[in-house]
Design a protein around this nucleic acid. Structure first.
Lengths: 254, 254
DNA sequence: TAGTGGTCTAGACCACACC
DNA sequence: GTGTGGTCTAGACCACTAG
């Protein structure tokens, strides 16, 4: 990494700083390595800490760095590709789908936005299953899966009113319908407090929100709202088996 | 909008501020309306301008606000859904695809990352077409479309070495191949200087990068890297004709 | 307890749009 | 010009992790 001094250019300092750091990351650091702390880096480049942080924030947004309070700033591994397309051209929670892990399930009248997307009447109860998606032992997504009670009418013999057991029962019932189609949308968002906790991030962290509607029996039978960590994930929508570009990135533990 | 004072809670001020502003936007403002300026808002809420800005940045990231230097902060319209899936299960630049607009075309040996994704040898020339995607009169995406020279061997009769005319000729040649499949990936990035200009944003603005590989004749015949404005776009991947959720948002000019 | 990143302040000046 | 958002500074204190 270079030493000091920034030229006086019309380009913002933090932008130039980001370029310099990017090159340093490419050539002088390896995954997992710890960078000097922010005060030290700021001094080394002759800028205020806030300016240095502006550069670090961008690099974190681009998945190049990972910062943890009380610990430090480390070089992030390449983003992991997570399939959100046809790899599971099936109901959520299908057998063999071990990436997702049911956490909880509640039944209630949903907020207006969810009811609208489901095209259910107001006051119609909806089961909401909370799930977590794990990859390489790390949580990458938190999901709320909304299923109108009408989609799973035969939900019987389950006395648990909530919890993982009930979540799995609801998913099992869902499999009995014939899936007719689905569509998805992806947009940028910031993590709500509950999602952030599930994703091991601070509230407000950038996330990719994937909204998927599942169709069966001519209706919207389920609505999934999944928030993926934007810093660590690359969402793949392959129809020919999304090949990894990054060849098995080595993970170095510090 | 409320007047003053923030309680002393363990919650960060900017986070609370964001919540308050979100509610105000929902109830007291309409699309296109101009907010008070940052110094005024900061004073009104009793915080430093930097803190107020932290809240505004998040709201802009979520597509709720639009800020323009020298002009002011306005309430953003709902995000527009742009289809990046099967609506064009065809080559880029197919007839009737008027959303995209060819800007330029150059031919050169590509950077290593592009060559790797194309699985071409190094030193093999590649045509690079630059395009812009327009929606509702606004630019929403900037794309670099990389096409190995081997994919369009019969590129003849075009004397222009670059420019829109050549771009269209390359795309026309590409149509002659039979498309066998494609896969896409979406990830968060920040706009490079050239893309930012094309998107009418500042460099570093958050973008959704859609990387698509097109397969033909058993090879990767083209590679598209499209950067979409993350603040204004919702990418749809429907296989059943992505329906709009937001019912034709009115655009109010100021 | 020591060290890290996260939040916050109260200023200053700059680049740009509009009049 | 005047007013806006964008950049930058030099501090301060807080929340969290780890030895």
């Amino acid at each position: 990494m270079g030493t000091t001094q920034l030229e006086s250019v019309p380009e913002p300092k933090y932008w130039h700083l980001k370029t310099v750091l990017t090159e340093a990351l490419d050539s002088e650091f390896s995954v997992g390595e710890i960078l000097p702390n922010e005060r030290e880096l700021a001094a080394r480049f002759g800028v205020a800490r806030a300016t240095l942080r502006q550069a670090l924030e961008q690099l974190e947004l681009e998945g190049r760095l990972q910062r943890r309070r009380g610990v430090g700033t480390t070089v992030a591994p390449p983003r992991v590709g997570v399939a959100v397309g046809t790899e599971q051209h099936a109901w959520p929670g299908a057998p063999g789908d071990d990436a997702w892990q049911a956490v909880d399930c509640t039944t209630a009248v949903p907020p207006a936005a969810v009811a609208a997307a489901l095209e259910t009447g107001r006051d119609e109860p909806v089961h909401t299953v909370r799930r977590t998606r794990m990859t390489h032992g790390q949580p990458v997504a938190a999901e709320l899966l909304h299923i109108p009670a009408a989609s799973v009418p035969d939900l019987t013999g389950i006395d648990a009113p909530s919890g993982p057991a009930r979540a799995r029962a609801v998913l099992r019932e869902l499999q009995r319908l014939e899936l007719e189609g689905r569509d998805s949308a992806v947009e940028l968002g910031s993590a709500r407090a509950d999602d952030a906790k599930q994703l091991d991030r601070l509230p407000g962290a950038p996330v990719l929100v994937v909204t998927t509607r599942f169709f069966a029996e001519g209706r919207t039978a389920a609505l999934s709202v999944a928030t993926y960590r934007a810093d660590t994930c690359r969402l793949t929508f392959g129809d020919s088996g999304g090949v990894e570009i990054h060849p098995d990135p080595e993970r170095r533990a510090s």
